[in-house]
Design a protein around this nucleic acid. Structure first.
Length: 273
DNA sequence: GTCCAGGCATGCA
DNA sequence: TGCATGCATGGA
């Protein structure tokens, strides 16, 4: 990857295996919106970004400093991981090979732990369209406006100041009480997400499973998308259908990158099963 | 009207 | 340990 500045923009050349529509709209992050010009706008780590891919396959990050790129976006888009090589290994499995050929460019985003955890608590027994709506209303009501119509994901402290009824009012449904208690515990320091992120996987998973409203599926999604455990393999109703294709368990070639294989299979399942 | 969605807590055996 | 049930909401 080559990084260049062009006026106030940042240009990434020679990026392997990155599809913006597939990565930003495949159900791992819920806050990216495609613009009329084909670019994508979103917020992560309280930074607004507009990004697009040009005709030559370069990625243009609008109004982005190299400081913000190094501090946020390089890791957010997982740009230091060799997806081309990982995909080659994963393609030893025939079904994944088919999904990678069809959906090449899905990456695992390294999101903020707090945002990922709350987002996947909201995701339970829910559909992606509605999850996006709830999170959008949550941010617009309680986040900080970073740019015209762009809001940060509200902090634990901010959400802790709310009542359960406030969270029900944005459409969170029965998950409102989970969000409220989680926000209270994080704001009070009873739950330390940075510490959890630094733990070995099994300890981190156990810590998340102790949280009210977090079960094995939500924990695995948070670990994969928010805590950088790329070996996690979340199983939801879609992945249960996919697992019927693997009666003997996951193939050896998934080892260490189960989460990446999972995201390709998840996207395939939603389009084909 | 019923069924389903990136499930979980609870009660019970 | 495993299984049945209730849960908020909106789209199909």
């Amino acid at each position: 990857m080559i990084i260049e500045t062009r006026n106030s923009d940042l240009v990434l050349r020679d990026v392997k295996c990155l599809s913006l529509p597939l990565t930003l709209d495949c159900g791992e992050a819920f806050r990216w919106e495609e613009q009329e010009d084909g670019s994508w706008s979103g917020v992560a780590f309280s930074k607004f970004l507009n990004i697009r891919e040009d005709a030559d396959g370069n990625f243009i990050l609008k109004n982005t400093s190299t400081e913000d790129f190094e501090a946020v976006w390089r890791n957010y888009f997982d740009l230091d991981r060799d997806y081309a090589a990982i995909c080659e290994e994963l393609k030893k499995d025939s079904l994944v090979a088919q999904t990678i050929d069809e959906y090449y460019g899905i990456r695992i985003l390294n999101q903020d732990p707090w945002e990922a955890l709350v987002s996947f608590v909201i995701s339970q027994q829910n559909n992606i369209k509605r999850i996006k709506g709830i999170i959008k209303r949550l941010c617009e009501a309680y986040g900080e406006e970073l740019a015209e119509g762009a809001y940060s994901f509200p902090s634990a402290e901010r959400l802790s100041a709310l009542e359960v009824a406030d969270l029900e009012a944005i459409g969170a449904g029965y998950r409102a009480k989970y969000i409220k208690r989680l926000a209270d515990n994080v704001a009070a320091g009873n739950i330390n997400l940075a510490e959890i992120k630094a733990m070995p996987l099994e300890n981190a998973k156990a810590a998340l499973l102790d949280i009210y409203g977090v079960g094995i599926k939500v924990a695995n999604c948070a670990l994969l998308f928010g805590f950088q455990f790329v070996e996690c393999f979340p199983v939801d109703v879609w992945m249960k259908r996919v697992l019927e294709y693997y009666p003997d368990g996951l193939p050896e070639c998934f080892k260490g990158y189960e989460g990446i294989a999972q995201q390709y299979l998840f996207h395939w399942a939603r389009n084909n099963l």
